[in-house]
Nucleic acid binder design. Structure first.
Length: 950
RNA sequence: GCAGGUGUACCCGAGUGGUCAAAGGGGUCGGGCUCAAGUUCCGAUGUGUAGAACUUCGCAGGUUCGAAUCCUGCCUCCUGCACCA
């Protein structure tokens, strides 16, 4: 058949669409399966990363449909965001138009790949039909006390009079005017995600996420148990509250360090000689962005504040410092410094000549010693200035200190999180307007539900000349009446972080045409039971999106909107796609593909090649459109799925895609060349059907485990090579073909659905494969025998080939015939007995010898040596292998037990074997029934005949 | 530094106690079909040998009759987090 890719693929895509085969509704008679990929930001055409993501999801959706599941498989667009705004500025249009155009492009690409989405549920988050529910949920959160408006520091440029996004700050300077950026407090909207910190962390133990994602989320939430300890300030009523995870080192505190921004600093130094030093340090720190503060801070610096604090347990007076390494936003912004057991404090103490007091020892009862590097692991308390602590270790020590702190009102056990509340507001246009009003009389007022959505105006001009958020200068948008008092009010002009949109979109898919609520509870409980059954996306969203979505699901659950608390039942993060890029070993740097075969731009050495993540900046991307035009969607999908398992990284290879195209061609060839079969049964029929049944069950298990590479290997490679072997062995029976292909074609559908439909229609399938439900293929009792016989034959040919090469070297004339001596009856009988004895509790060690001696054949004295040898190899084996009764497969054992006639099988297939070995003749007889050629009689054993060549 | 992962033949990659010199794919080499090419089919691809033996699954030890697989230590590379108290 001519493989007319374009015709076949467009034909079936049209059929699927016209017959709405992928539309689903609630159906309680079937188990549901919710398969979802992270929806894309529509930036234009689909790229290879998308293709990989969706090919995995589509294969699973199609597989689960075949398994009889009611599959929800939707697609939509995460279409709010800055790029659309920037594109609009560039083109002088509106982000809305840019977005609509891009969505149309990517959707065309997706349809061309043949993905089986239920398009009736699709939506884009930038439409009022979607974002009005963002607003509705926001107000519900507000009413539930989860929304907070408070001041937070942002990057601010004085010259441009505007907030800058992190990406717009380069080297701490404004990207536009070059002025240094400062931190400025501004009123911002927050979602109180920290309320759910414990649940978000603890539930990780019970969900099916990859370990690295769990680790990242645990890291991000960063819960640490410790103590809050109050250090009273000498000569002042205020106290310094410090957080520590190491209360067991409290007796080693020799100073206290505050972050330079700590509000107490100013109080403490006001009017003193220390004020100037502190101001310098604070200004230096405040100039730095968060990024620099964390990543570029090399030198630990501090200034004394000239005051002292009191260690609440020991009563010792210790000096107070401000230090640039103390982070204001973590804990309380104050640290009790224990230079004896904290490396940073040690370095700091050395630099400023502060005392060092070790209070932990490695061995109970030993003195604590000053050392560098310090002992910062757990130790035995010692040198404590109060009774009852020395000798305590680890958690006991911590608990004891916390207990006394609490009893004396000087502190308490506490928990700290790294996780912060979600800063939701953005000073951007292309996002969901925050549905809040500012009224002079009533303050902040939520927009009433019946007035939603607060729509983004379309009459807004975008140009590079304008700065700030166009909403702030749009009077029609800005001015309104207060719903409470009727007086004049201004709308909030900040919009929501676009991660908000993607935090619940999977809930909307269940009920995406609902006009009265975000989603109906009963509907969503059906689809979301046990979470989304398979969620597939990139690892880059491990923390942000996945954490936000988990938070959202718990929050809406607590609002009574849904039942589940965890949105994702199983998460699969697909690996990176790599392609070759020029690489300099010296500089450890990858360069743009323009540099192939050139020299390193920085060190001038010749460039090599290395696989690197596909990226625009390297130019090593591969366009899916070009590949689909050239090879077809099926081939691209096959390449993607066969190239690597979903989680593994994957290298693009031009050779490999060509070879997958060949594989497609071979499948077609195998199919076509079997269409004119007539009824001509052959003994190999049983074998190929047994193989089919075995493969089918292995395939099903692999697919259920999302081991797509393994699944595709069985469906597209193993099945084909079995079919080719069948043909080589003379198989050409129409009935066998019908059974084989009827079972095989559906297996092809998940990865290569178009060709599967084409085949299916040609063999007279009534419905489409996409509508088919397949049953388990039951194996037959004698499958194992058919498989084992053929395996025997193939093994025989393999070893004969090997031996033939050796034999040729020992022969003066060219080899022309093969003589195979099968094991004598007594060896088979011996093996058969050993097998059946093994299934009883026979003690071979104790009774083996006696058993052999009791056999009739043992009376033949000339055989005794060989008998013992055979017995040995059956039950004991040698140094390398255990006895054969332990290593034979079930099939092999059943062949032996059933007195399988090796000679007969070989002679019946002599012609085929001869051809495979390129010899004129193959003859087989039992040892003793003919001449012992090349002394092979002795080495013959059951299933392992003596092979000789003449 | 902490956490998660990784290391297998020329390359990619499967393999979790013996049936393992180790699936499958790519590459390379040889052969069939063909005037030729090949969207084709067959075979070879650690050394070696009338089927032995030997060496090999990051390195070094250990457990075991037996280790790619289990244990201990070390190294490598990747990813994430980080002066986080």
């Amino acid at each position: 058949m001519e493989y007319d890719i374009q015709r076949i693929e467009s034909h079936w895509q049209k059929q699927w669409k016209e017959n709405k085969v992928f539309s689903v509704d609630i159906d309680h008679s079937k188990p549901k399966f919710y398969c979802l990929e992270m929806f894309p930001y529509p930036s234009g055409n689909m790229h290879m990363g998308h293709v990989r993501n969706y090919s995995i999801g589509d294969a699973m959706a199609r597989f689960q449909r075949l398994m009889g599941k009611n599959v929800l498989y939707p697609m939509g667009y995460d279409s709010f965001g800055m790029p659309a705004e920037n594109a609009a500025k560039k083109e002088g249009g509106h982000p809305h138009n840019v977005t609509e155009r891009n969505i149309a492009m990517i959707r065309t690409d997706q349809e061309r790949m043949g993905y089986s989405y239920d398009w009736s549920r699709t939506f884009a988050t930038s439409t009022p039909e979607y974002y009005r529910w963002n607003q509705e949920i926001f107000i519900k959160f507000y009413e539930a006390g989860l929304v907070e408006r408070r001041f937070a520091p942002v990057n601010w440029c004085n010259d441009c009079d505007t907030v800058l996004a992190n990406e717009q700050v380069k080297n701490n300077r404004c990207w536009r005017c070059g002025l240094e950026v400062v931190q400025k407090d501004m009123a911002q909207w927050f979602l109180r995600m920290t309320e759910y910190a414990d649940e978000l962390l603890d539930d990780l133990d019970h969900i099916d996420f990859p370990e690295n994602v769990k680790a990242m989320q645990r890291n991000w939430i960063g819960r640490s148990h410790g103590a809050h300890i109050d250090f009273p300030i000498v000569g002042d009523d205020s106290v310094i509250g410090a957080f520590t995870t190491r209360p067991d080192t409290i007796f080693g505190v020799t100073f206290v360090t505050l972050s330079p921004e700590h509000p107490l600093c100013e109080l403490l130094v006001a009017g003193s000689e220390y004020e100037a030093g502190w101001r310098d340090l604070r200004d230096e720190c405040s100039k730095m962005s968060e990024f620099e503060r964390i990543n570029m801070l090399k030198e630990k610096k501090g200034v004394p504040l000239g005051r002292f604090a009191v260690n609440p347990l020991s009563g010792e007076k210790v000096p107070i410092y401000a230090g640039n390494f103390v982070v204001a936003s973590y804990g309380t912004g104050a640290v009790m410094a224990v230079p004896g057991h904290d490396q940073r404090d040690y370095d700091f103490a050395k630099k400023y000549g502060l005392p060092i007091k070790p209070v932990l020892s490695r061995i109970d009862g030993e003195e604590a010693i000053e050392e560098n590097p310090v002992l910062d692991s757990l130790g035995y308390m010692t040198n404590s200035s109060r009774e009852g602590f020395d000798g305590l270790f680890g958690d006991d020590a911590k608990a004891a200190v916390i207990e006394i702190l609490e009893s004396e009102g000087a502190g308490h056990g506490t928990v700290q999180y790294r996780l912060k509340d979600w800063l939701l507001s953005r000073q951007r246009f292309w996002g969901t307007p925050i549905p809040m009003l500012h009224c002079d009389n009533c303050g902040v007022v939520p927009v009433p539900s019946q007035n939603l959505p607060v729509e983004l105006p379309l009459d807004v001009k975008f140009s590079w000349g304008e700065s700030g958020n166009p909403l702030a200068s749009n009077d029609n948008f800005l001015f309104t009446d207060c719903p409470k008092c009727g007086g004049p009010a201004r709308r909030e002009t900040d919009t929501m972080d676009t991660f908000y949109d993607s935090s619940w979109y999977f809930l909307r898919y269940g009920d995406s045409n609902n006009k009265s609520t975000p989603f109906d509870r009963e509907v969503i409980d059906y689809w979301m039971e046990g979470g989304i059954d398979l969620y597939i996306g990139g690892i880059e969203h491990a923390v942000m999106h996945l954490l936000y979505a988990r938070f959202f699901t718990k929050a809406t659950r607590d609002l009574g909107m849904n039942t589940v608390g965890e949105p994702f039942g199983q998460l699969v993060c697909q690996g990176m796609l790599n392609a070759p890029a020029p690489f300099c070993i010296e500089c450890n740097t990858e360069y743009h593909i323009d540099n192939f075969d050139g020299e390193c731009p920085s060190c001038s050495k010749a460039l090599g090649t290395r696989q690197a993540k596909m990226s625009k900046s390297l130019g090593n991307t591969v366009s899916p459109g070009v590949m689909v035009d050239r090879y077809g969607a099926d081939t691209v999908r096959l390449f993607i799925l066969f190239g690597a398992n979903p989680e593994a990284g994957m290298d693009w290879s031009d050779n490999a895609i060509v070879s997958n195209a060949r594989q497609m061609q071979s499948l077609i060839e195998a199919f076509e060349s079997s269409q004119n079969f007539s009824n001509s049964p052959n003994q190999i029929d049983d074998w190929v059907l047994a193989r089919m049944r075995l493969n089918h069950s292995k395939w099903k298990i692999a697919m259920e485990n999302v081991s797509l590479r393994e699944g595709v290997m069985i469906s597209h490679f193993d099945m084909l090579s079995d079919w080719q072997w069948y043909r080589r062995r003379g198989g050409s029976d129409a009935n066998t073909r019908n059974i084989f292909f009827t079972n095989w074609i559906p297996m092809l559908a998940p990865a290569t659905p178009h060709i599967a439909e084409e085949f299916w229609s040609k063999i007279g399938g009534q419905e489409m494969v996409s509508e088919l439900i397949i049953r388990d293929v039951a194996t037959f009792d004698d499958d194992i025998t058919h498989l084992s016989k053929e395996t025997y034959l193939r093994n025989l040919i393999d070893s004969s080939r090997n031996i033939k090469g050796l034999a040729q070297r020992h022969s003066e004339t060219p080899i022309s015939s093969c003589i195979i001596q099968t094991a004598p009856d007594w060896k088979n009988a011996l093996a058969s007995s050993a097998i059946s004895l093994k299934s009883t509790d026979f003690d071979f060690k104790k009774n083996g010898q006696d058993y052999v001696k009791s056999l009739d054949i043992f009376s033949m004295t000339e055989l005794r040596g060989e008998i013992f040898q055979t017995w040995q190899s059956l039950i004991l084996g040698n140094k390398k292998n255990r006895g054969k009764i332990y290593t034979w497969s079930e099939g092999e054992k059943s062949l032996i037990s059933s007195k399988f006639d090796e000679t007969e099988l070989i002679n019946n297939n002599a012609e085929f074997i001869a051809k495979a070995l390129s010899v004129d003749s193959v003859t087989s007889y039992k040892v003793g029934d003919g001449d012992d050629i090349a002394g092979k009689a002795r080495v013959s054993s059951p299933l392992d005949p003596g092979i000789s060549f003449l």
